[in-house]
């Protein structure tokens, strides 16, 4: 399992795609970060914050907005990362190597998933350097930061699990990417209908972003964490079954 994960990470890092994603992520997020910090430091905002009794601190303002952005950008980028996971193995006919090796289906899927997750953690680690740089001139609410980080990791895990599942369905990375993109966008947009109609509570509950927001606000609720864990587990199990049924079809 770990071997597959390590190979996955290595092959990701040897592709230009991963590096360009890393670069683009860094660029967009740092622009966003710089803008928010600038906003936070503007005299009129500062004076208004000073007058309010429950004013949001720098962690609330800067970090939450940064993570929220990261979530949205990664939602767009995730299909590109997940598309090749299984479908490329299928296309290059390398899947028999894994299937005939003494590794279980669970091992293959988990290896793929963990490999991708470690790459996503690298991205996050790079991005985390920006809020940490604020420590030079102030102090952060680490609890809040940790909640936001956890939320992001969980969100990414859920997105990656969906992408992985869709990648097991097809032999064409492009098809996998487009379908994943559609599904992720839909899961994001489900939320919007929830805002307009009060009774569509189920849809709001299903939305990926909705659960993310609460964690970004620094509220650690078991419900949200379990939501993401269930989400990941569901799609990983589906992927395992899908790969298994490949042999039977």
């Amino acid at each position: 399992m770990w071997i597959i994960a390590a190979r996955e990470l290595r092959s990701l890092l040897s592709s230009p795609l991963a590096w360009s994603i890393l670069a683009v992520m860094q660029l967009i997020s740092s622009w966003n970060f710089a803008k928010v910090v600038e906003l936070f430091l503007r005299p009129d905002i500062q004076s208004r914050l000073a007058n309010e009794p429950n004013a949001p601190g720098i962690t609330m303002m800067v970090v939450s907005s940064l993570f929220s952005w990261i979530g949205i950008i990664l939602l767009l980028v995730m299909p590109l990362l997940t598309m090749r996971l299984i479908s490329e193995e299928r296309r290059n006919k390398t899947l028999p190597l894994l299937l005939s090796a003494p590794v279980s289906m669970t091992g293959i899927i988990m290896g793929k998933f963990l490999g991708l997750m470690s790459f996503l953690l690298i991205i996050l680690g790079m991005l985390l350097l920006m809020p940490l740089s604020l420590l030079l001139g102030g102090h952060l609410d680490f609890g809040h930061l940790a909640a936001g980080l956890l939320g992001t990791i969980l969100l990414l895990g859920a997105l990656a699990a969906i992408g992985l599942y869709i990648s097991t369905l097809t032999a064409h990375p492009t098809i996998a990417a487009i379908s994943t993109f559609g599904v992720l966008l839909l899961l994001w947009m489900i939320d919007w209908t929830g805002y307009t109609e009060e009774q569509s509570g189920v849809l709001t509950y299903l939305s990926l972003m909705n659960h993310y927001q609460t964690l970004l606000e620094g509220i650690f609720s078991t419900e949200d964490v379990i939501y993401y864990l269930l989400f990941m587990a569901l799609f990983l199990i589906l992927s395992i079954h899908r790969l298994d049924s490949d042999r039977i079809q």
Binding site: R7, R10, N92, K93, L95, L97, P102
Partner: peptide, 28 residues
């Protein structure tokens, strides 16, 4: 078991030695 399918299951982006080490790991 050792299996060579019709099309060799090779990762094109890996070095030969990397690939063989990976296979060795994979086969415990």
């Amino acid at each position: 078991l050792g299996y060579l399918p019709e099309q060799p299951p090779i990762y094109r982006e890996m070095l030969v030695i990397e690939y063989l080490r990976f296979c060795a790991h994979l086969h415990r």
